[in-house]
Design a protein around this nucleic acid. Structure first.
Lengths: 339, 339
DNA sequence: CTGAAAGCGCTTACAG
DNA sequence: CTGAAAGCGCTTACAG
């Protein structure tokens, strides 16, 4: 059995309160001599405070909980989650919070999940790109648990940290149009994620402006994953009347499209311009380097933590924030051969 | 205030024990009618069990703690940590454990860190590639906390999950030698990490066999990061008498070497063959696709969790394991122009 | 100034 | 069968 505060008190003929105050260096003052004796014995007995017990009484855990968006399988590998997580972790490090990653999302009933995220183990939650139909947020809200949301907005005034997807699509398409493209295809991301929905909608809205031309067959799903990007690109690009450019909702799918183009004997960008979104760490390494949109997810992660902890510690209402993006032009896009 | 078990007991004129047994569906049996009433009221009052309180009495948390190797900054982004983490998380999901990521490694004193990892919040620890000079392991061991170690062996019989670095280097160099290379350079990884040390030593041991030839200037540090791989490759490759092949201790540094080669106007693999280790998710995408060694870190992560939880739950001693690797030949290596 | 005691929300041995 | 009580290891209001 590990040493407790009582063990120390007993051996030193002190009260547990004195020992507690000595170990915590306050808030009640303890004579220096007594304090020294306590610290010495604590060290000798290898005493370490039980944080669970402390949390039990203080109600604080100094832990931030991360609620993943979906079934958990491979979620952390996703480059976009990753960049966000990196910001979150770095900022938690700075704010002296640990990070609890909730698992058990695949198997359990929603009832269990909702209990898991509100069972006292964390001071606050980050909903990391929650599904649009997830009602965990409402539950957390109703229960009064501090939380913030990334990559999803909300009809009510909840704290959300999002990208401007309309801007992203506009920047991408403007870039392609400025190169002379009019026939543009789109591989869209998962439609249970707001980014997937909004980017597709923004793309379709541009069709109404007649800025660009597309066809039903040129707009295909890709679920944000490489393999499906490949399959869909294959469909789009084998069309005899194919687009001259392909806008993919993320870099993973764009890479899948690279493979499809290669198999069909199409050169990038001469035969087909390809764009992604994310500015993945490898996007400048591939051949040709990928034109993409950088999202600054690292800052988004940092801000999510900053705002959440400010709320936890000072009760200041988190300010929702829209994060800017940046077009990064590389060699995967150029003017089309024929206009 | 959230509803507690006492609230329910009071309203229903029952004892807390009955309510507890009803909610937990055992171990003591409770009449069906009573159980139903309890569950109904629990739902009505939005009761959810306080896990902190439960842990306090049971001593279990169903949480695995991850101890990162170093200062935390950007640690999760490292592709090798990432693959490992992915296995860990997937397996925790399966075993119904949550994952606590300890932060606060940069700033705090070692005393605090060692307390943090042994303060009751986790059932067991995974030391993820600990520094060779870290004594956190000894502390955890002395305190009787269940743990396993990855990417580091130990003089005593502690549970470790490691790669066969001698095999890795031998496979890599054999591959290069079989292509006809004799003059081989090496960019080694961080020497506070066992993988960095062992791979460098294995490389130097091969020099004694006279299988290959190297020179002091051809062996440079890279700290496992891209930028330093670039700098060191620049040094090695600007040598008029330069090697014909470069073995880098990981893919990140190899990519750095790509950049150096490009700047020096050297073609890969015609002028310089380059190899990495890791089989990073992007390693087949770059141009030319990188010849590398795949480590199956996902399985390593899974096994670490499996063995740890087996120990926690059944007291079965974790079995140390050495993980095999696989040479993946791609286009970044070929026969040297001149022998 | 410092000790005895209550209490955080549970589980579970102990009584009846 | 079920309730009253102890206890997990702390913090902190309450007494003296």
């Amino acid at each position: 059995m590990p040493t407790t505060i009582r063990d120390i008190a007993k051996k030193l003929n002190l009260s547990v309160s004195t020992v507690s105050y000595a170990l915590n260096n306050g808030p009640r003052s303890v004579p220096e001599a007594v304090k020294l004796k306590v610290l010495e014995l604590a060290k000798e007995l290898d005493y370490r405070p039980n944080r669970i017990a402390k949390s039990m009484v203080t109600g604080r855990t100094y832990t931030i909980g991360i609620v993943p968006s979906d079934q958990f399988e491979n979620f952390i590998i996703s480059p976009f989650i990753l960049q966000c997580m990196n910001g979150i972790i770095n900022e938690c490090e700075r704010c002296k919070y640990d990070v609890l990653l909730f698992t058990r999302f695949g198997a359990t009933e929603e009832f269990d999940i909702s209990n898991s995220i509100s069972d006292g183990r964390v001071d606050g939650l980050i909903f990391l790109a929650p599904l649009v139909n997830s009602n965990l947020i409402e539950i957390a809200d109703r229960r009064g648990i501090p939380f913030v949301i990334t990559h999803r907005s909300h009809e009510r005034e909840l704290p959300t940290f999002t990208l401007d997807n309309v801007q992203i699509v506009r920047d991408a398409i403007n870039h392609l149009v400025s190169l002379g493209h009019r026939k543009i295809g789109h591989i869209y991301g998962s439609l249970v994620l707001q980014d997937g929905i909004e980017r597709r909608k923004a793309f379709e809205d541009l069709l109404e402006d007649k800025t660009i031309i597309s066809q039903p067959n040129w707009i295909q799903p890709g679920n944000f994953v490489r393999e499906e990007g490949y399959t869909s690109a294959l469909k789009i690009l084998s069309d005899p009347d194919r687009p001259t450019a392909l806008f993919c909702s993320n870099d993973e799918m764009a890479v899948g499209a690279y493979k499809a183009a290669e198999e069909l004997g199409l050169n990038i960008p001469e035969d087909i311009s390809i764009m992604g979104v994310d500015n993945a760490v490898w996007s400048h390494l591939i051949k040709p380097p990928l034109t993409t949109i950088s999202q600054n997810l690292h800052d988004l992660g940092i801000t999510a933590v900053t705002e959440l902890t400010k709320f936890i510690e000072k009760g200041e209402r988190p300010q929702s924030q829209h994060f800017g993006t940046e077009l990064i032009v590389r060699a995967s896009t150029s003017s089309p051969k024929e206009k």
